[in-house]
């Protein structure tokens, strides 16, 4: 088995506020190995984003966050992050946005723009480098965000519902894009989604989260044949089997939560 890229052990996270304390994660443990795609599904509010932020190192500098447990990322300085909203700099061209990580690392302009155009080609946006983000559709902007996360060659890519705001067609084509990019770069990807189908199609493993505070309830290994595709993989019996199993589990989780509320 490949080496560990991410290792989370007994992680608990709480947010402190003047009105009290909210527990976001409780005793979460899992590992992600090099070259894997691991997807995380779970009802909203179960701490999925908190988990990604903890791995990205975005919580450690916050005074209002209490963390216990271990989060270890091999090569922690080498992480790419794709958000649900593209988070592009609107005053920079598409190519300049893609080159951002290289700029931060001090790569000279000419060289980084060359790399940027290569990654734009990879996500199917050749010739759009000179445009501004507002001139692109939501799906294209998310492709730019993906290219940006890849361009500085990080070992681990975190994705927080990156396709959550896209329509079904665009979403399917970007799922294929992610599969293709993974095929070519073999990057380790940890992705949060609320779409069970997406989690199965993309993931080598699917982690199902639940509860408040959030925890990892179970793990499914996806044995779908490769190469996969957004439409093709849905036709496999394995897909239906996993979909039903995960759906049943999430339904149970939602029901439990409603009972607690009453």
């Amino acid at each position: 088995m490949a080496a560990e890229r991410v290792s989370v052990e007994g992680l608990s996270v709480s947010y402190l506020s003047p009105t009290g304390r909210v527990d976001a994660l409780q005793d979460v443990s899992f590992k992600v190995h090099d070259g894997e795609i691991v997807t995380i599904v779970g009802p909203s509010g179960c701490g999925k984003t908190t988990l990604l932020n903890a791995i990205a190192g975005l919580l450690s500098f916050r005074k209002d966050v209490l963390m216990r447990g271990i989060v270890h990322v091999r090569d922690a300085g080498s992480i790419g992050y794709v958000f649900q909203r593209d988070a592009l700099l609107p005053w920079r061209t598409v190519a300049e946005n893609v080159a951002l990580g290289l700029e931060v690392r001090g790569v000279p302009r000419e060289k980084r723009m060359g790399i940027a155009s290569r990654f734009l080609r990879m996500v199917g946006l050749e010739g759009y480098g000179g445009k501004y983000p507002h001139e692109l559709s939501a799906g294209m902007r998310q492709r730019v965000a993906l290219a940006r996360a890849l361009a500085y060659d990080p070992e681990l890519i975190l994705m927080d519902e990156p396709l959550g705001s896209l329509d079904a067609q665009t979403r399917a084509s970007l799922q294929d894009e992610i599969l293709m990019v993974h095929e070519r770069t073999r990057k380790t990807i940890l992705m949060v989604t609320h779409d069970i189908a997406e989690a199965i199609i993309l993931g080598d493993r699917v982690l199902v989260m639940g509860g408040r505070p959030g925890r990892v309830n179970s793990e499914y290994r996806v044995e779908l044949p490769k190469p996969r595709s957004s439409h093709g993989s849905r036709l496999e019996p394995e897909f239906s089997r996993l979909y039903r199993a995960i759906w049943d589990e999430l339904k149970e989780e939602m029901r439990a939560r409603q009972t607690v509320r009453q």
Binding site: N53, A56, G57, L58, G77, I79, G80, Y81, F83, R85, A87, L88, L89, W91, R92, L100, G101, E103, V104, R105, R148, Y152, L158
Partner: peptide
């Protein structure tokens, strides 16, 4: 999220100032 992107990329405070804050 833009500030988070900068942090994850490992940008210094000065870089964040120059690349994000001042243009904004």
């Amino acid at each position: 999220d833009i500030l988070n992107v900068m942090r994850v990329m490992g940008a210094s405070r000065l870089q964040t100032m120059r690349i994000v804050i001042l243009p904004s």
